[in-house]
Simulated scan of single mutants.
Amino acid sequence: MKVLVTGGAGFIGSHIVEELVDSHYEVVVVDNLVTGHMKNLLPQVSFYKRDVRKDMDEVFAKEKPDYVIHQAAQVSVSQSFTDPLYDCEENIVATLNILQSSAKHKVKKVVFASTAAVYGNPSYLPIDEAHHVQPISFYGLTKAHAEKYIHLFAHTHNLDFSILRYANVYGPRQDAHGEAGVIALFIEKLICGESPVIFGDGNQTRDFVFVKDVARANVAALENGKNEIFNVGTGQETSINEIIDHLAVSLRRPIQPTLRPPREGDIRSSVLKNDRAQSMLHWAPCYSLQEGLLKTVQFYQQENPYGVQEVIS
């Protein structure tokens, strides 16, 4: 079976590609390399440098993928406020383009990377998939609209799908500049000998899920969970201050963060209920926060050997 992964040279996408290869799928990657990197790609993977907002028929016609995992996106909440038009193009127009090519070339299923940001400020915790969709950022809004296109394509073109609403994904290869993951930002600051910046008081909470677990959820969704929406998270609520504490233990050094005012579009608290993914995708997270953070710090130390040195192994 062949899987086409958009954004497959990026942070999450490259881990999905590795999981697919390990599961004996043939893999085709499409990436414009704006945030992705060639060094993230395995040698046995076919690669096309393409803008997924534009015509993809040539790639689909040549490769004839059985499945599509649509990972390519603009994923920064803050950037969605500064450039909402680009956010719309990357997250709605590109998705529509992929859906059209998938329907035309008889793809069996599209797995779509969505986000917990579609829920907006939660009415209750943990958030389940029945929670109202009321985003407070343009990023969440574009992902919510992309989901609606997917539902309509399923109805009008008989195109199967699974929608995965990610919690806060972290892990090796996350770009602190391009993808704005708070853990990657913290570690980069520490490596450079700077104080990590917290927007707010640090008591805001998130559901931090390790990227390898997210990759496993995508592969599980290829054969399971037809025409369903799934939260992909740990079900564990962790504050930003607790992340700082965990990093201090891993690095064997005290960390004094710099506090700044909260940012527009940031949610106070979020944690996802993952029961549906467990029962229908037969998936559950394997990595604890401590394990995931340790692997992430070790990765950045290897990338920056003259930065932070001490890690508990």
Rank of each mutant, 00 (worst) to 15 (best):
L190E: 02
I191L: 10
I191F: 02
I191T: 02
C192P: 01
C192G: 05
G193P: 05
G193I: 10
E194F: 11
E194D: 13
S195A: 14
P196V: 09
V197W: 03
V197E: 13
I198Q: 06
I198V: 15
F199S: 15
D201F: 04
G202L: 12
N203L: 13
Q204S: 12
Q204I: 03
T205Q: 12
T205C: 15
T205I: 12
D207H: 04
V209W: 00
V209Y: 00
V209S: 03
F210T: 08
F210R: 04
V211G: 01
V211D: 03
V211W: 00
K212I: 04
K212M: 07
D213W: 00
D213Y: 00
V214T: 11
A215S: 10
A215D: 09
A215K: 02
A215W: 00
R216S: 09
R216M: 05
A217N: 02
N218W: 00
V219E: 14
V219N: 12
A220L: 11
A220D: 12
A220E: 14
A221P: 04
A221D: 13
A221K: 00
L222N: 06
E223S: 15
N224L: 07
N224G: 05
N224A: 12
N224F: 05
G225P: 03
G225Y: 07
E228I: 09
I229Q: 02
F230S: 12
V232P: 03
V232W: 01
G233I: 09
T234S: 11
G235Y: 07
Q236P: 01
Q236C: 07
Q236R: 11
Q236G: 03
Q236S: 08
Q236K: 12
E237C: 14
T238K: 07
S239M: 08
S239W: 03
S239Y: 03
S239N: 06
I240T: 13
N241R: 04
N241V: 05
E242T: 15
E242S: 15
I243R: 02
D245Q: 14
D245E: 09
D245M: 12
D245I: 13
D245R: 15
D245K: 15
L247K: 00
L247P: 02
L247R: 00
L247T: 02
A248K: 01
A248T: 01
